Simulated scan of single mutants.
Amino acid sequence: MVNDIPVMAEPPALPVEKVLEALRIAFTDLVQRRAVQPAQTLTPLVGGGDVIASQGVLEGVYGVKVSPYLPQAHGGPVVSAWTLLLSTGTGQPLLLVDSAELTAVRTAATTALAVDLLARREADTLAVVGAGPLARAHLRYARAVRSFADVRVYSPAVAEGRRAAGFDDGVRLASSVDEAVSGAHVVLLCTSAARPLLDAAVLPAETLVTSISTNAPRAHEIDPQALNKLDVYGDHRPTVAGAAGEMVLAAEAGVWDPSMLRGDLSELLTGGCPPPSGRRPVFFRSVGLGIEDVAVARLLIEG
């Protein structure tokens, strides 16, 4: 405790359904102006590296997550994340929490919310590309919104037999991206790739592909040239097109425009945008939002 503020270096696990419901409420409140989502800010550091700050306001709570990215002379960069919650009534701190695990949770839960809203009801075949903590969290949350009978996982490490921990017996390890994705109704891209892993435009109509952000500049897991052949959605319309690498690159190449974004999570939850057309593959891109961090961290003090 610091000045009677709970400090959590290892936050407890949260129930999946509780997290999903918290995000549904947060995104609904956002479109109904009961929540505030400022733009993310990036502050460069002298000598290299940066700090990303993600803010959000939900009922009674302001929160900010700070995420330093600190290159090292030897070895990989140091990356951390801490979330601070303040009461909007008293201005007093409510919680300081290490957000490493919470970031994986809120990212996976946001993707699962998109799966629930965008994947066809009978979707029962899932491909996960990636095998790290984010991939495992995505699998756990995706299974909470659909009953997948066939689950395939691919990553180079898994294909080479170097890592398969964290996956149950109901998961089939694929030897290539193509093998994992073939016939899948939902494809979750959960990697740190800075270049395309697949051409989403050649997938069957109604196939849902999701993608998340990484620290790599202009990172993109699908070919930017494919965007104009997809039904494209994002987590938050005002911010996603300016931050998602494939959207920025496609706009610069003149093959796609942010006005072509069909909708975001708030609009999907409240009927403010059209559903997928059923004629093309569907692509959902998230870049991460402060209200997601606040919604999940707030669960830790609500009990």
Rank of each mutant, 00 (worst) to 15 (best):
Y141E: 08
A174P: 07
L139Y: 10
A159D: 11
T125A: 12
S80E: 13
D124K: 14
L86S: 04
F167C: 06
R163G: 00
Q55E: 15
A109S: 08
A135G: 14
P77K: 12
R140D: 04
V128M: 10
V66C: 13
F167E: 05
R106W: 01
G91L: 03
R143D: 05
V66D: 03
A112K: 04
A142T: 12
S99R: 02
L113W: 05
V105A: 00
L134C: 00
R136M: 08
L70I: 14
V145Y: 10
R106N: 04
Q72K: 14
Y69L: 13
R143A: 02
R136T: 03
L117N: 08
Y141F: 15
R136I: 03
G91W: 05
G75V: 03
A123G: 09
E122G: 06
P156K: 04
G63L: 10
A114S: 12
D116P: 02
L86V: 07
A119F: 02
Q92N: 03
P77I: 11
L113M: 12
T83G: 07
A73I: 09
D124T: 15
V129E: 07
P156Y: 02
G56V: 13
E122V: 05
Y69N: 10
G89T: 13
R143N: 13
L118H: 07
L117E: 10
V57F: 14
V79Y: 02
V158K: 00
T90K: 08
G89D: 14
P93D: 08
E59C: 04
R162K: 11
L96D: 02
L85Q: 01
R120Y: 09
H74M: 07
S80V: 01
A73T: 14
R136A: 05
G63Q: 04
T103Y: 03
L139H: 07
S147G: 11
V64R: 06
A114D: 01
R143H: 05
R106I: 02
V57P: 06
G75C: 08
A149V: 13
A131G: 15
R146H: 14
L134R: 04
G56W: 08
P156M: 02
L94E: 14
L117Y: 05
D124S: 15
V105R: 02
L139P: 11
L70F: 10
G76Y: 01
T110S: 13
G76L: 10
A100S: 09
L118T: 09
A164L: 05
A73G: 15
V61N: 06
L86K: 02
S147Y: 04
G170I: 03
A142Q: 12
V79M: 05
G166A: 01
A137D: 03
A108H: 01
S54M: 15
V66W: 11
R163I: 00
V129D: 09
T88V: 13
V105P: 03
L126A: 13
V78H: 13
A73R: 15
V97D: 00
S155W: 10
E101A: 10
V66H: 11
P68G: 05
L58W: 11
V158E: 04
K65P: 06
V128A: 10
V151K: 08
L126N: 09
A109Q: 03
A81Q: 08
A119T: 05
T103E: 07
T111W: 00
A137E: 13
A149M: 12
P68I: 02
Y69C: 06
A159Y: 07
V64M: 12
D169V: 07
V57R: 15
G132V: 06
D169P: 01
L84D: 01
